[in-house]
Amino acid sequence: MKAFLLLEDGTVFEGNSFGMEGDVVGEVVFNTGMTGYQEVLTDPSYCGQIVCMTYPLIGNYGVNLDDIESVKPQVKGFIVRELCQTPSNWRSIESLNEYLRRNEIIGLEGIDTRELTIILRDKGTMKGTIVTAEKLTEVEEKLDKLKKYTIDNPVLQVTTPEIVHTAGNGLRIALIDYGLKKNIVRSLVRRNCDVTVFPATATAEEILAVNPDGIMLSNGPGDPKDCRFQIDNIKKLIGKRPIFGICLGHQLTALANGADTEKLKYGHRGCNHPVKDVEKDMTYITSQNHGYTILEDSLDKEVMSVSHINMNDGTIEGIRYKNSPLFTVQFHPEASPGPGDTAYLFDEFIEMVKKHKKGA
């Protein structure tokens, strides 16, 4: 069936629907990864967003049970140039079309995804709606609906509703779930950690009550400045245990230390972003998914130092803190999808926790 994408600037793309039919509204963003569409679909950081994949053929290896990053797809809608209807992979259990239909996600294929990406790069991320219909009618009414659309409390929509414990025989790590990807837990478990996942609503007192050796702050969706409770909570945790923050956890920690953030024009989303580790003088290819960045001129240089820099646009990709065992990064060292070049940061976190525990 025909389907349309209407952007808030009035631009219209005509294609065909797949997955579920209907209407959906969200923030339209693009991802530059050549593979990893299943991880993208299930990444909670995409809550409230319609994702356009820039690689032209999507769905060629189907969907499996191993590569999901949360229990269900988190995107509002999914846009591809060409959908593969006959996937071929030994792990595949269903096609992408079947997977999205079963999970009630609206898809759009057959539009010029290059043109859409150029528009979003030139004008910036904007709201949009996918409409399954033979003709696009009542455009003005739909544009009015787009302008009123907001993503309300996305962190609370994706965080775990209860504490989840994964037993291990090593260090005890408290992981605060702002919208975490499962591979963060996997990365800790592979290092023999005992992991307890807490909801984003858990208090500092509740987290410290389990006597963790270290604390991790996960990725997640939305504007970090909307997470006022979480920011105040991080203030209470700083200095109590070694802390490692990823993506949204990186931004919230900076805000808790008096820094400021702003929205990027079109964000960083993909698994091919070059980032320089300043101390190592090495550049790594990283997986990223975020729409906000920390402003360098807002950093308290007595407390914070930039540890990683984005080689495309010079934005901050990592911060180390001088007054406590604490560091954070904007990219995803757990990858999924993407390269594992920066997985060494998990090892650095483990060593920092061990050193702090030995000193305590």
Score class of each variant (00 low, 15 high):
residue 3 A to W: 07
residue 7 L to H: 09
residue 9 D to S: 15
residue 11 T to N: 15
residue 15 G to M: 10
residue 16 N to Y: 10
residue 17 S to R: 12
residue 20 M to P: 02
residue 30 F to H: 13
residue 34 M to L: 06
residue 35 T to A: 15
residue 43 D to H: 07
residue 44 P to L: 02
residue 45 S to G: 12
residue 46 Y to M: 11
residue 47 C to A: 08
residue 48 G to W: 10
residue 48 G to H: 04
residue 61 Y to E: 05
residue 62 G to R: 01
residue 64 N to Y: 05
residue 65 L to D: 14
residue 69 E to F: 04
residue 74 Q to A: 12
residue 82 E to Q: 14
residue 82 E to W: 03
residue 87 P to W: 08
residue 87 P to C: 07
residue 93 I to L: 06
residue 103 N to E: 09
residue 105 I to P: 04
residue 109 E to K: 12
residue 111 I to C: 11
residue 114 R to D: 14
residue 115 E to M: 09
residue 116 L to R: 00
residue 117 T to V: 13
residue 132 T to V: 15
residue 140 E to P: 04
residue 142 K to W: 04
residue 143 L to F: 14
residue 143 L to D: 05
residue 151 I to H: 03
residue 152 D to E: 15
residue 153 N to V: 08
residue 158 V to M: 09
residue 166 T to W: 00
residue 166 T to S: 05
residue 167 A to G: 04
residue 175 L to C: 14
residue 176 I to K: 01
residue 176 I to N: 05
residue 176 I to G: 07
residue 181 K to D: 12
residue 191 R to H: 03
residue 195 V to M: 06
residue 203 T to Q: 05
residue 204 A to G: 13
residue 211 N to M: 10
residue 214 G to F: 02
residue 214 G to R: 01
residue 221 P to I: 00
residue 223 D to I: 08
residue 224 P to E: 07
residue 225 K to C: 07
residue 226 D to M: 13
residue 226 D to G: 07
residue 230 Q to W: 07
residue 232 D to N: 14
residue 233 N to H: 01
residue 233 N to W: 01
residue 233 N to I: 02
residue 233 N to C: 14
residue 242 P to N: 00
residue 243 I to P: 00
residue 245 G to E: 11
residue 246 I to R: 00
residue 247 C to T: 05
residue 249 G to F: 10
residue 251 Q to E: 09
residue 255 L to Y: 03
residue 259 A to G: 05
residue 259 A to Y: 07
residue 261 T to I: 14
residue 264 L to I: 11
residue 266 Y to H: 15
residue 271 C to E: 08
residue 272 N to M: 11
residue 275 V to D: 05
residue 275 V to A: 02
residue 277 D to Y: 07
residue 286 T to I: 08
residue 290 H to W: 12
residue 291 G to H: 12
residue 293 T to I: 05
residue 293 T to G: 02
residue 294 I to A: 12
residue 295 L to H: 04
residue 296 E to Y: 03
residue 300 D to P: 01
residue 303 V to A: 04
residue 305 S to W: 02
residue 306 V to I: 15
residue 309 I to S: 11
residue 310 N to P: 09
residue 312 N to W: 04
residue 313 D to K: 12
residue 315 T to P: 01
residue 316 I to L: 10
residue 323 N to W: 06
residue 325 P to L: 01
residue 328 T to V: 15
residue 329 V to M: 04
residue 330 Q to L: 06
residue 332 H to N: 05
residue 337 P to Y: 01
residue 341 D to V: 03
residue 342 T to P: 00
residue 342 T to E: 03
residue 347 D to L: 03
residue 350 I to G: 02
residue 350 I to C: 02
residue 357 K to W: 04
residue 357 K to I: 00
